[in-house]
Computed example of a mutant assay.
Amino acid sequence: MTKMDDVAKLANVSTATVSRVLSKNPNVSLKTQRRVLEAVDILGYKPNRLASNFRKRSSKTVVVVLPDITNSFFSKIVQGLEEVAQSRGYHVLLGDTRNNVESERNFIDLVNQKFVDGMILATARLPKEEILAVSQEIPIVLACEYFDGFDIPTVTIDNVSAAREATQHLVNLGHRRIGFISGPLSIVLGRDRLKGYRQAMLINELPVEESLIQEGDFTVQAGYNAMMKLMASNHPPSAIFAASDEMAIGAMKAARNKGLNVPEDVSIIGFDDIPAGTYVHPELTTIRQPAFEIGTQAMNLLLDMIKGCAKERKQLVLPHQVVLRETTTSPRG
C-alpha cells in the first residue's frame, strides 16, 4: 500500500509538503505542487482520510438521517442538501433509520465519535433531551421536525396551518363527514397535522368523530389499511385527508377495491406533493412542501454553524401550497 512517505521520496519533498499540497494550501509553489501531484498520480496514492480527520479535527463530511429512505418525499430533500454540500466542498453520508429509535441513536453515536462534522435530522423520535444534549457538542439541524422551546436550528413548514387548509378545502367543496389518516402521533408532524384537521372541523362547527381518525405511519400500506377501516363504517366519510401522499395513494387503492370511484364517491387529499401524485389516476390533490428548498436551507444552516458563521435566525418556516388536481370534488347529492 502506497504511503505518503513514498510520494515525498519520489517528489523529493517532505511529507509535510505533500500534506500541504493535498490539502490545497496556497503557500506551496506551483512547481512543487506539480511535482507532488505527478508523484501521487504515478504511485496511485489515496490519502487516509480517517487519519487526516483526527489531525485536522474535520472530516468535511456530514451525516443526514432519514426516517424512511424509500419515501420519495425525502429524495427531493436529499437532492437539495447534496447540491449545497458539493458546492461547499462537503460529503454527505445518508442514514436510514427505518423509523427505528435505536437506529437513530446509533447515528448520533457516530456523530459523538467525531467521524463527521455535523448532522441533519429529518427524523427525531429520540427524546428531545437526548438530541439537545448532542446539539451542545456538535452542530445539528432539524429538517421537517422541530422541538418547542429548544434552541436547535430548524427548517420546516407550518404543518398545523397546512393541515387546516387541506381540511378546509374539503369543507369548501361541501363535505361535512371528513375522515383523517394521521401520521404517527408519537412525533410532532403527526400531532401537528391532526391539530390542523381538528381546528378546521371546529372552525366550521363540524363534529370531530374519533372513529373517523385513523393513525398511520406515512406509508402506502398504512393508508390502505386505514382507508379500509374507514370505509367499513356504517356511515363512511365522503372525503379523506391523508397526512402524506403515500398514505393517500394507499387510500385510493382501498377505495377502488371497495368499488368506489375517486373523487365521485369519495374525495381524497394528500400531503407532500411527491412525484407519484401526478402519475396516479386520477391525479392527487395535495399540500406541496418545498422539499428541495428544505434540503438547501438545512444544509446551508448546518455548514454555516460548522464554520462558525451561523445566522441569527435559526428557525426557518418555509411556505406551503394547496395543489388542486383531480381527487377532490363536491359530494354527491
Rank of each mutant, 00 (worst) to 15 (best):
F147R: 07
S186D: 14
L185N: 10
E165C: 02
E165I: 10
L142K: 03
G179P: 04
G174C: 10
S211D: 14
L194I: 11
K195C: 13
E145T: 01
E205M: 01
H169L: 14
T154Q: 00
C144G: 02
I213G: 04
E210D: 14
L206Y: 06
N159R: 04
D192A: 12
L142Y: 05
A162T: 06
N159M: 07
N172R: 15
E145P: 00
I181F: 01
V208P: 06
E215W: 09
G223A: 08
K195H: 14
A200H: 02
E215G: 03
V155R: 00
D148P: 08
E205H: 15
E209Y: 05
V220G: 00
A163G: 10
L202M: 13
G196P: 04
D158P: 04
P153V: 03
H175E: 09
M201G: 01
N159S: 10
F218M: 02
A200T: 05
Q199N: 11
R193P: 06
L194E: 15
A162W: 01
G190A: 07
L185G: 06
E210I: 00
E210Q: 12
Q199D: 13
E209S: 09
L173Q: 12
F180H: 15
D158F: 10
A162M: 05
G216R: 07
F180L: 14
G149H: 06
I213S: 00
M201A: 06
R177Q: 11
